Simulated scan of single mutants.
Amino acid sequence: MLKKMLKSYDYTLVLAPIILSLFGLVMIYSSSMVVAVSDKYEGTPDLFFMKQLKWLILGIFVYIMVLGFPYKAYKIFLKLIFFGAPILLVSVLLFGKATNNAQSWIFGFQPAEFIKLGVIIYLAGVFSNKQSYIQKFVPAFGPPLMFIFFIFLLVYKQPDLGTALLILAISGMIIVCSGIRLKHLGRLALVGVIGATLLYPLLTDEQLNRFTAAYDPFHEEIADEDGYQLINSYIAIAAGGITGEGLGKSIQKFGYLPEPHTDFIMSIISEELGIFGVGFVLFMLTFIVWKGFTVAVKSPDPFGSLIAIGIAGMIGIQSFVNLGALTGLLPITGVPLPFVSYGGSSLVLLLISMGILNNIAMFSRLKSSEKQNNEEKKIAYL
């Protein structure tokens, strides 16, 4: 059985995220060496590189553990997620550590990152259990929608609007694929529009300025403040051209582009490695997302399928939001680029997610193999 399992794993889903994470590790070192020795951090040039390396080793270790854990067993955690996620987020608001104007850290990690995976597993479990009456809106979607709304409010209060909206987007993707009726989906879309309208007046001046900075960064009143990061991102991208300035030869990382190893690391990749470096990252991310949806289609049950959709959607949406921010297509939200940006919580979460995804792929292949063997036995018997 163990031999069959080992043969059934999708090893492209092992290699792709690890290769991309190792590439990110190199770029984190290149983009952060100047920041690391600045007065703010007073460290050695490899400060962030070594921290990310430790997280990567931990992430790979957890990935291997998750790889062998049957994904169907995650259903036993549904109640724990339902009650535990809000309690954890409330604890962050009460006792968490504030960083960059957001109180989102506790015990050395960001719970909101792991809440994303928790929401995916919870919604996949609930909707797979309700397939017999999924078209009855209130009993099928009432409790899950209340859970999503409560999680959104708690993350928004940190305040972390970017992650809160990302959770909504991932949840929306799972709901669309759950079997919901079109008229119910239309009602939800209307509620979303009304919610966004009501939310707009509640945005802080800083959050509103991010919209202005995204679409008019050169305005004289914001060019030196909220538009500063985006303008320098444009300069980095333009400087890279086709082939780039060369690995380690970025100018923008010398104090011009703030925190270049985090959300705007793709700007440094563009500056140093040009369109080839950007193309490599985009190809790898696209491949991972495509594989995720492929696993979802081939999954033998709704639970595995919805988890795969949620994980693929999380990586795809997060990539789009990050790249949209550094190109001025979307406001800056602080969402990291999957597998590439500096951030231990994000990296470990993503590797755990990939382990679950590969476990679903493995069981799908085993199921398909068993079905094929049974058909061959029937033919031989006849």
Rank of each mutant, 00 (worst) to 15 (best):
209 N>S: 14
195 G>A: 15
207 Q>S: 03
162 G>C: 10
201 P>I: 09
184 H>K: 09
207 Q>H: 04
182 L>S: 12
204 T>Y: 00
161 L>Q: 05
176 V>I: 14
196 A>P: 08
209 N>E: 11
194 I>P: 10
189 A>R: 10
162 G>H: 05
166 L>A: 05
209 N>T: 12
176 V>G: 03
168 L>H: 04
198 L>I: 10
183 K>G: 02
164 A>W: 04
210 R>C: 01
201 P>C: 06
165 L>R: 05
207 Q>K: 06
174 I>Y: 05
176 V>M: 10
181 R>E: 14
178 S>N: 06
173 M>C: 09
182 L>I: 13
204 T>R: 09
202 L>Y: 07
177 C>G: 01
188 L>N: 08
194 I>T: 13
209 N>P: 00
210 R>Q: 04
208 L>C: 09
175 I>S: 05
170 I>W: 00
184 H>T: 09
165 L>I: 11
188 L>W: 03
180 I>N: 06
185 L>G: 15
197 T>N: 09
206 E>Y: 15
209 N>Y: 11
179 G>H: 06
172 G>D: 03
161 L>P: 01
182 L>D: 11
182 L>Y: 12
175 I>K: 06
169 A>T: 04
162 G>Y: 05
176 V>N: 04
199 L>I: 11
191 V>D: 00
172 G>P: 04
195 G>Q: 10
195 G>I: 07
186 G>H: 00
187 R>T: 14
171 S>F: 06
172 G>N: 01
184 H>N: 15
162 G>T: 07
200 Y>M: 12
176 V>K: 08
188 L>Y: 08
201 P>W: 10
205 D>R: 05
205 D>W: 00
184 H>I: 03
180 I>T: 09
176 V>H: 07
206 E>Q: 12
201 P>Q: 07
204 T>N: 05
190 L>A: 14
210 R>F: 04
171 S>R: 08
167 I>T: 07
166 L>R: 04
189 A>I: 15
180 I>Y: 08
